[in-house]
């Protein structure tokens, strides 16, 4: 099995604390054109994917694996308020866009893609779920090229939105989109593994079996993993505003700083002691 080569990475991260950033010029700058009749959620997906591709053209059979913490809040809140508070039926396009995979459609359309298209979620492991399935498809030859990314929006009023996200009053929150372009062939940085572990013992056994070099391996993990020999830490979340798909930013943040040959081991966990890991080689 081959690694999943990272052919591109990029994204968008903007703390929102008052009037929301106007995304229209950002979309235009990123994609080279104005895109009509899209809201913030689809805009963010397009911005992240365009910055990831950086002007390159992916093969038309490229697949899209997309994740989001809570989907298109903007349009869903609009539709549900119209229906229940105002007594209006939904606008047809607003209704269609309540389906979160509409963002996948606009990414595919923008970049001329016709491959597999999936909107995926997993509480606490959303990006890991999308990455795991993308890497699986790349390694088994089902796809040769994959865009893997996220989008999370903010809607006003911000205090209500913080509550939805489980964040305390006044906590910094952000809109964000983070994307990777993975290919089955090529040289350079790569996602080497993306795995899920039912128990801590399974995770630790896997880490031990990988024989990571502590000198060149950085560990990004929200939990103590003192049992491992990995002591170099990589804290890409420190000082960053909250958004649901935070771990989608890890690979790009690591590659921006890493020396060739360095490796990131990224671990996420939930409150039941389940774990997801992925590794990135610079």
């Amino acid at each position: 099995m081959t690694d999943a080569r990272i052919a591109g990475h990029g994204g968008y991260l903007q703390e929102e604390s008052g009037d929301l950033t106007d995304l229209k010029p950002v979309v235009k700058e990123a994609t080279g054109q104005a895109v009509r009749r899209i809201g913030r959620f689809i805009s963010l997906a397009l911005i992240g994917a365009a910055r990831c591709l950086g002007g390159q053209t992916p093969p038309p059979e490229t697949a899209v694996y997309f994740t989001t913490g809570s989907g298109d809040f903007e349009v869903t809140v609009e539709v549900i308020e119209h229906l229940f508070r105002d007594g209006f039926p939904p606008k047809p396009l607003s209704f269609i866009n309540t389906v979160s995979n509409a963002a996948c459609f606009y990414v595919a359309k923008q970049f001329g893609l016709s491959g597999r298209s999936s909107c995926l979620g997993s509480k606490g492991f959303g990006f890991e779920a999308a990455l795991q399935l993308a890497v699986l498809d790349l390694k088994t030859g089902v796809v040769k090229s994959a865009l893997v990314g996220s989008a999370d929006i903010v809607i006003p009023p911000l205090d209500a939105h913080r509550k939805r996200l489980g964040q305390p009053p006044g906590a910094p929150i952000a809109e964000a989109a983070h994307w990777l372009w993975l290919t089955a062939d090529g040289e350079g940085p790569a996602v080497e593994a993306a795995r899920f572990f039912t128990t801590r013992a399974d995770l630790l056994a896997w880490i031990a079996a990988q024989d990571f070099d502590p000198e060149t391996t950085l560990l990004a993990a929200p939990v103590d993993l003192a049992e491992t020999s990995l002591t170099r830490r990589f804290d890409y979340l420190m000082g960053q505003p909250y958004h649901d798909s935070g771990s989608a930013r890890a690979a790009g943040a690591f590659l921006a700083e890493a020396a060739p040959g360095e490796r990131l081991v990224h671990i996420a966990s939930d409150d039941e002691g389940r774990y997801a890991a992925f590794t990135v080689r610079a």
Partner: peptide
């Protein structure tokens, strides 16, 4: 609206816990 039950993976997570599954969970929303 939508002050609870907002996570896309929330329903799967609740279902998984109710039936004692500890494997990976995927919500496919296509």
């Amino acid at each position: 609206p939508l002050m609870a039950n907002v996570a896309m993976g929330g329903l799967a997570d609740t279902l998984r816990r109710r039936f004692g599954l500890r494997g990976p969970d995927f919500t496919v929303n296509t």
